[in-house]
Amino acid sequence: MKARGPAPGALLATLACAAALLFVADLALGSVRIPLVGVADALLGRATDSAWASIVLIFRLPKALTALSAGAALAVSGLILQTVFRNPLAGPDSLGIGAGASVGVAIVVLAAGSAGGSAFLSGLGLAGYALLSIAASAGAFLVLLVILLFARRVENGVTLLIVGLLVGYLAGSLVSLLVYFGSPQKVQVYLGWTYGSFSAVTARQLPVLFAAIGLGLAMTARTSKSLNALLMGDRFAESLGVRVAGARTRALLAAALLAGAATAFCGPIAFLGIAAPQAARRILRASDHAILIPGAALLGSVFALAADIASQLPGGGTVLPVNPLLALIGAPIILSIFLRGSRQEGSAR
């Protein structure tokens, strides 16, 4: 009765298949091409070629799993921000939340105690990585709080983005100060982190990433009902019995945790957080968060996996940084939102 075109369920299943295909492709492709049979053997632990097995299990599987989960986390975080701020251009990076997370990471990496050296990041134990994600999430949430404070006073969405930009600059200047006073080795580590990569996470650290993102997604799923109401405005939501301030804070906590964890492990990943939820809305033709949350998560995984595969394309051991590749996908999507938005304003209001 409500459906137009394919049912959302079928579209979600298609997206899930696409994510699965890209996941397998991400395991098979790279500087060394491994046939699908080899990938399957390695995964099932009956590998005949031990080199292939170690490439798949030690390098590519953690990387693909990281791309899968970080992509989903950033996309869902962006979806929440777009809904809560009722702004299609809101996202972890456009609101300066990635910058906030960077401050958290910079403080841990550059200012933390004695554990120095270039092995700092990879040498961190599980506790260290948990600390890193907590610091990044805290930085992200702090920025969100500042933006929330402004959001109550400024109705205009563009103004809000400018506030986000300024907050981002502020966070950036804090980071520069930390970098200025940091030891060269630590700065090196920090700068490497800022390029954004899915490959820095080892199999041992994955559980921390999974736990943080799993918690964030579970929190998001619980807010899906109130997110729908918030999309229609605060007064609308309140008249339906939603405790607006509480619901908004819970949703933003989830968004900060998701963006913070993904940023802590993969560095600031640009565009994905804005572009994936937008694309999900258009592909699924839905505004219901019960559909959009899984949809954005799957599409975020698809984007991240595609970018990771593309980053391996040059072959011969050369790996491109992920961020510029995501910008190639993301920038046109955001541009088209701008163009469509101004057209709609011209006709509808």
Partner: peptide, 29 residues
């Protein structure tokens, strides 16, 4: 019902009216 203008996205008339059941539905709506 207030005078606000709504950015209702892809919501249908049915979806909008179904918001009225929000106080009565379970956590999964």
């Amino acid at each position: 019902v207030f005078t606000d203008r709504y950015d209702s996205g892809y919501f249908t008339v049915f979806d909008i009216v179904a918001f009225g059941r929000y106080p009565y539905t379970d956590a999964r709506n």
